[in-house]
């Protein structure tokens, strides 16, 4: 199943997509399997698997700290992919890797695409690789049918939004705030028209991300998007083994009002 079909089938069943972000190796690679399978069991649509990096410029403090813990555990792109491959047969939902570009370049784009595919990776988010620079790895990804997801900043000029929406694969990642990852209590009020606008450029599902941290926000965003990505809050909950919070967030996506 490609990333896009997985998203679409979740949405067709009347739910909103829910994609949790986890930092691979936070708590050690040994718990990666358990975490992923348990999230799958809760009914998430896909899982975004973060790869730690030494210079995570797009991340806020929560994910950055999780990354530092993972790095201290000796985690890197190579051993994450190897670990995922071990239990790939048990994972029925698509995985989306989120990694900064340099680890991919060091790995080699073709080798990365091959190993990522075997590890169950169907989508890729590279936060420091805008569309204009994506040719550096795009061909290799396409050959393995790994969708390259574009982040769209809602404050960008219309032509740019249209261009990114048209180029995205799998789904469109709508960045709900100007800035970096991390929980926010306040969002701009006029987000809904932005999402409607975005939908007009592409048939892909549009997911909202950056700053979403409460079940209420999950529901609210669900009312005008196709689903949400929750990062920092999940990372935080996992670090405290707080599955109750995670469950409440996932549940909220199932109540979200369908527009």
């Amino acid at each position: 199943m490609t990333l896009q079909t997985a998203m679409e089938s979740a949405i067709k069943s009347g739910e909103k997509a829910f994609v949790p972000y986890i930092m691979a190796g936070d708590g050690g690679l040994s718990i990666l399997r358990e975490t992923i399978l348990r999230l799958q069991h809760l009914g998430v649509t896909a899982i975004e698997v973060g790869i730690p990096f030494t210079d995570p410029v797009a991340d806020g403090p929560t994910i950055e700290k999780a990354g530092e813990r993972a790095l201290a555990n000796g985690v890197n792109l190579r051993n994450v992919l190897a670990a995922l491959k071990e239990f790939a047969h048990e994972v029925k939902i698509p995985l989306v890797a989120m990694t900064y570009l340099n680890p991919i370049l060091a790995y080699g784009a073709a080798a990365f695409a091959q190993d990522a595919y075997e590890a169950g990776i169907r989508g890729l988010i590279v936060p420091d690789m805008p569309l204009e620079e994506s040719s550096i790895i795009h061909t290799e990804l396409s050959e393995k049918e790994i969708s390259l997801i574009q982040l769209v900043s809602l404050t960008s000029p219309t032509e740019r939004i249209a261009k990114l929406a048209a180029a995205s694969e799998g789904f469109i990642y709508a960045v709900t705030v100007n800035g970096i990852t991390g929980a926010r209590s306040v969002f701009s009020n006029d987000l809904a028209p932005h999402f409607a606008n975005l939908k007009s450029y592409s048939a892909l599902p549009v997911l909202a991300g950056f700053g979403i941290s409460t079940p209420e926000q999950v529901e609210a965003f669900g009312s005008f998007s196709d689903g949400v990505i929750v990062g920092s809050k999940i990372v935080d909950a996992l670090a405290h083994n707080d599955w109750e919070t995670i469950e409440s967030l996932v549940k909220a996506s199932k109540h979200a009002e369908v527009n």
Partner: peptide
């Protein structure tokens, strides 16, 4: 160094085999 990306540019970069700076 080897070629890589840091702080927005592709350039020669001191990094390990994992692409960590």
């Amino acid at each position: 160094g080897q070629k890589g990306v840091l702080h927005g540019a592709y350039m020669y970069l001191l990094q390990d085999e994992n692409g960590f700076v």
